[in-house]
Design a protein around this nucleic acid. Structure first.
Lengths: 209, 209
DNA sequence: ATATTATGATATACTATATATCATAAAGGC
DNA sequence: GCCTTTATGATATATAGTATATCATAATAT
């Protein structure tokens, strides 16, 4: 599904892409065309398959001109992501501090729904990103097989299983990247309190015994 | 830090790599050498920077031979990941069902500690994978800035913040990939129950008002 | 012992990245 | 509005990496 024009221009129309500090209109124009071209192309055939020549042809920009703005594809994508992050943070931080925390979630998911094409592109990017996805997939199936869902739960079992596995991997990732500053026993306790306990009580029947 | 030999052979020594259904010793040998070479090279300079020629030279295998076994780098990496997944699942499923759920976390983190080099390689792979990492990083900083940590909490604020953001992204990812089957309001409620509530009560002082 | 098959070495076509150069056109400062 | 500055387009080119084909040789399985 191609990205709707309206959505594109809401997100990129006001020249957010690096344009904050850019004076020359030509630069603004070029960078916007490149960003929109990349976005459309990822949606069509995935990030990895997109070449820089693809981007410049779609944007109708000279090939060499690309490198006058970005070192490589990743840098352009990163710029694109920054737009989304900033918009979302602005949306969340613009809230009154006393506001009902229940609505924060709604705000997030409404924003995502309104920009689903872009978010899909940014989250679904590529290779070993999809390796982690593959691990989550396999893990989730296993959790569902091992646990009995609670019929009255407001949290669907499928979501709970996905959350359980994805959160576990994220926690492992944090631990590894910070050079394992806490002992496995301590991490096990944190893991239980932050992830296992809430997930099980929300969506699954706690194994007796 | 290069990967220790002992660790390598514990993980790959028994010819797990596709070798289950392989009869010819030469095939087994080749695939193991390629897997070990990739693992070492990723640790040295990152997945993206590793070329197939690098791999075959390190493994001391003919360049063309690589393609007789794998279509590309990703396929080799995926095979490598399967070994880890299977080992970890075996470890967790081998547990008695009546066993204390608190120890499950310890088992996971002990396994990770014992294979940290490999896990680091598999989780830290590359580009837009690191784009998501970048988003998590920025989001976490924001959460820490906005919330007051609870001094007596067994869960460090830094971990809680990371968990909050990483879980949010994972939930969004599930929703997007399943074509948004629930309304944003419903997702907001799930989000609150599964992620916000447990994280805040574990590690942060709930905002009064 | 023999037939089978994986490997090494080599050649080659192809795709994509990245940089350099120069004429042209568009922009901004005044 | 004029003039200087600068971004762009077009083109050429060097380089790196992927992917496939071929053939002699060596290891393997039966």
């Amino acid at each position: 599904m191609p990205i709707g024009r309206g959505e594109q221009f809401f997100l990129l129309g006001e020249a957010h892409i690096r344009a904050m500090h850019v004076r020359d209109r030509r630069v603004k124009r070029t960078q916007n065309l490149l960003a929109q071209a990349l976005l459309a192309l990822i949606a069509e055939k995935g990030y990895d398959a997109v070449t820089i020549r693809d981007i410049t042809e779609r944007a109708d920009i000279g090939y060499a001109t690309f490198f006058r703005h970005y070192r490589d594809k990743d840098e352009l994508l990163r710029d694109l992501a920054d737009v989304v992050i900033n918009e979302l943070l602005e949306l969340l931080l613009g809230q009154q501090p006393g506001r009902d925390p229940a609505t924060v979630g709604q705000l997030i998911f409404r924003y995502v729904a309104d920009h689903s094409a872009v978010v899909r592109v940014l989250l679904g990017s590529r290779g070993p990103a999809s390796l982690v996805q593959h691990v989550i997939q396999r893990g989730s199936e296993n959790v569902l097989r091992q646990n009995k869902p609670r019929p009255d739960s407001p949290v669907p079992a499928e979501i709970a299983a996905h959350h359980l596995v994805a959160s576990s991997i994220a926690l492992i990732q944090w631990w590894i990247e910070h050079d394992m500053p806490y002992a496995p026993e301590r991490m096990g306790e944190i893991y239980r309190q932050l992830i296992v306990q809430p997930t099980l009580t929300s969506a699954f029947i706690i194994d007796p015994e």
